[in-house]
C-alpha cells in the first residue's frame, strides 16, 4: 500500500463523520429554505418566498439590528479592556502568573451561567452591583435594568464581554510577547517615552493579533445566544432579541422550518463575511 493511500484510509472515518454532520445538514438547510415546511400545509416547493418573507419581516430586521449592537458593543468593550490589560501585563515583572490566572478565570464559566450570574448581580431586588450603584449615589432607587430596553442591552453586553475579555487579553498579550524586546530598548535609548513606544512599536506590531481577536470575538458573539437566553430571553419588548433567538422561535414556537432555514442561510452568509475577512487578513500578512 502506498503511503498516501494509508493516509487517506486513516482519514476516512473522520471525513465520513464530517460529511454526515456538516455537508448533509448543510444541503438540507439550503433545500429547506426553498420549501414551505410549517406542519400545517403539505410540504411544497416555495421558491424564494421564504427569503422574501424574511426580508420583509420587521422582527427579523429588529433582531439583526440588535445582534449588530450586541456583538459590536461586546467586541468594542472587549478590545479596549483586553488591550489595556495586555499592555499592562506585558510590563510587569512580579505576580504576572497570578494576574494572568485571575484574568482568564471568567473564561471558565459557561456562557449560560455567566448570563445567570450577571442577571443576579444586576437584579434590582437582590443584586449586589445594583445595590452598589445606589450606595455610590448613582441612583436613589435600585435600577430596574431588565425593564429598561437600553439598560438590558448594556447588561447583556457586560455579561458577554466578561467571558470574552480573557481570550482577547491572551491573544493580544501573545502578540506583544512576540515583539523583539530590543525594539523597545532601542527606542528608549533614543528617548522615546511609553506613549510613543506604544503608538509606534506596540500598536503597529500587535495590529494583527488585535484584528484576529476582534474578528473572532465579533463572530462568536454574533452567533451565540446562551447568555442572552439566561438574562433576558430577548426582552424587554424584544430589546435584546437577537437573530439566533429569532431562528429558535421559528423552530420551537412558530414551527415554520422553511422560514427558519432561510434565516439560518442568511446567518451563515453574514458569518461567512467575517470568516472571509479573517482568512483574507491572515493570509495578507
Amino acid at each position: 500500500m502506498k503511503d498516501s493511500t494509508f493516509g487517506f484510509l486513516l482519514t476516512i472515518p473522520g471525513l465520513v463523520f464530517l460529511t454526515l454532520v456538516v455537508a448533509f445538514p448543510l444541503s438540507l438547510l439550503f433545500s429547506l429554505s426553498f420549501l414551505r415546511y410549517d406542519f400545517i400545509h403539505p410540504i411544497t416547493f416555495h421558491g424564494l418566498r421564504n427569503y422574501v418573507e424574511v426580508l420583509n419581516n420587521r422582527v427579523f430586521w429588529l433582531s439583526l439590528r440588535n445582534t449588530i449592537i450586541y456583538s459590536g458593543g461586546t467586541t468594542t468593550l472587549t478590545l479596549l479592556i483586553g488591550l489595556l490589560l495586555a499592555v499592562s501585563a506585558a510590563r510587569i515583572k512580579r505576580f504576572s502568573a497570578l494576574f494572568r490566572t485571575l484574568l482568564i478565570l471568567p473564561w471558565a464559566v459557561p456562557l449560560v451561567v455567566s448570563g445567570l450570574v450577571w442577571r443576579w448581580m444586576l437584579d434590582p431586588g437582590v443584586g449586589v452591583y445594583n445595590y452598589i450603584l445606589t450606595q455610590v449615589g448613582f441612583s436613589r432607587e435600585p435600577i430596574n435594568i431588565f425593564g429598561e430596553p437600553t439598560l438590558a442591552m448594556i447588561g447583556c453586553i457586560l455579561s458577554d464581554s466578561w467571558t470574552r475579555i480573557p481570550f482577547m487579553f491572551i491573544v493580544i498579550l501573545a502578540g506583544i510577547k512576540s515583539i523583539p524586546p530590543d525594539l523597545y530598548e532601542a527606542a528608549r535609548v533614543d528617548g522615546a517615552n511609553r506613549i510613543a513606544t506604544f503608538r509606534n512599536i506596540t500598536l503597529p506590531l500587535v495590529k494583527k493579533s488585535m484584528l484576529t481577536g476582534t474578528l473572532i470575538t465579533s463572530m462568536f458573539s454574533f452567533r451565540t445566544i446562551d447568555n442572552i437566553w439566561s438574562m433576558t430571553r430577548g426582552g424587554p419588548a424584544k430589546a435584546t432579541y437577537v437573530i439566533g433567538l429569532n431562528l429558535i422561535d421559528y423552530l420551537v414556537r412558530y414551527q415554520n422550518l422553511g422560514f427558519g432555514a432561510a434565516i439560518g442561510v442568511i446567518m451563515l452568509g453574514l458569518i461567512s463575511i467575517f470568516a472571509t475577512l479573517i482568512v483574507y487578513y491572515i493570509l495578507k500578512e
Binding site: 438540507l28 438547510l29 431562528l247 421559528y250
Partner: peptide, 24 residues
C-alpha cells in the same frame, strides 16, 4: 482540501444547522 473542509465546518454557525439537525 480536507483541512479546508474542517476549517469551513468550524465557520458554519451551529445555530444555522439547528433546524436540519432537528429534522435528522
Amino acid at each position: 482540501f480536507a483541512m479546508l473542509f474542517f476549517l469551513a465546518s468550524r465557520i458554519i454557525p451551529p445555530l444555522s444547522l439547528l433546524i436540519p439537525f432537528y429534522i435528522m
